[in-house]
């Protein structure tokens, strides 16, 4: 335990982390963005409640607060998918364009610590946004229908998604020289994850209906849906008992029906989601470390060989 605490303290003493957080958090734009986001989420929550209770808060039923929770959580997922690439897609290419990367690489900071710091600072702003909305979610607790563990489960899923999007964006930022291209590729990857997989799943479902290999196409469709954060969040909310679609919209109903048809709440679906998102993120970040200084692994290999021969 003491060793972990020491390592954590040492890591927190990382000068790049302190510099990045200081630079990000002390600008006026950050305060403005935080305030604006809270205002929008607050306004949405207020309008949602007002429409449902017509000004009489006693009329608010637990089922309705579950709807509000579902709505807010999807709004937050949309925010994550839009804002994360914007923040993370320039972390390395921006350093390269500002011509500060060369100097940074000649300091004793390792490429791994640079990439990991960039990852943490990229997601820290979004994490702050998520944490800031917790008081708004407490409105949901006030009227019942949702318990804290359910909220935490949805937040957990969103944090994994956030980490994956940040990793993808940092990957493009490290491998492409220009921030412009990195941003385009990051958003394209997010679009492929959120929309592309949904379209592919829908396509495979339709093929399955007219094919003799229904099981195979159905399985492929299920994989596509199980890798899509929108459907996995729906599966989480469905498994928590939120079967009432928000505003009874047909598109939301279709998402929940896909969850039931393909049994996305199953362990297998969650395993494939977590394996891809966590494992994929780790692989992408490792490739970024290699790209940042190609000699890193050669040195590590030599050290390992020397250690083994000893």
């Amino acid at each position: 335990m003491e060793a972990i605490r020491y390592r954590l303290a040492r890591w927190m003493d990382n000068p790049l982390l302190r510099k990045e957080l200081r630079q990000r958090m002390r600008s006026g734009r950050t305060v403005l963005a935080l305030s604006l986001y809270l205002f929008i989420i607050g306004a949405v929550a207020f309008v949602f409640m007002y429409v449902n209770v017509q000004g009489q808060t006693l009329l608010l039923q637990p089922a309705r607060t579950a709807d509000l929770f579902t709505f807010l959580s999807y709004l937050q997922l949309a925010m994550i998918s839009f804002v994360t690439p914007g923040i993370a897609s320039g972390v390395i290419s921006g350093e390269r364009e500002r011509q500060t990367l060369t100097v940074l690489l000649t300091t004793p900071l390792s490429p791994a610590s640079i990439i990991f710091t960039k990852f943490v600072t990229s997601i820290s702003f979004l994490l702050l946004l998520i944490v800031m909305t917790l008081p708004l979610y407490s409105i949901v607790f006030l009227f019942g229908g949702v318990v804290p563990s359910q909220v935490l489960a949805v937040f957990g899923l969103q944090i994994v998604t956030l980490g994956a999007i940040a990793s993808v964006s940092i990957f493009w930022s490290t491998w492409l020289r220009r921030t412009g291209w990195s941003t385009v590729f990051s958003y394209a990857t997010v679009a492929a994850l959120f929309l592309g997989l949904a379209v592919a799943g829908y396509l495979f479902d339709n093929i399955a209906n007219h094919s003799s290999d229904e099981a195979v196409w159905g399985l492929m469709s299920g994989i596509c849906y199980s890798l899509n954060p929108i459907y996995m969040q729906a599966s989480l909310e469905a498994s928590l008992g939120f079967t009432s679609p928000v505003f009874h919209q047909s598109i939301v109903s279709s998402v929940f029906s896909v969850v039931q048809i393909h049994d996305l709440s199953s362990t297998a679906s969650w395993q494939s989601f977590f394996y891809l998102y966590l494992g994929g993120s780790a692989l992408l970040l490792v490739s970024c470390i290699w790209r940042l200084r190609p000699g890193t692994f050669a040195v590590l290999r030599k050290r390992l060989l020397r250690w083994l021969l000893r």
Binding site: K19, Q99, T100, T102, V103, T106
Partner: peptide
Amino acid sequence: VRRMIGYMPDVFGVYDDL
């Protein structure tokens, strides 16, 4: 080597807001 050298490239940038 990195600890022993101070390197100044021909063109280098600086961080904003520092």
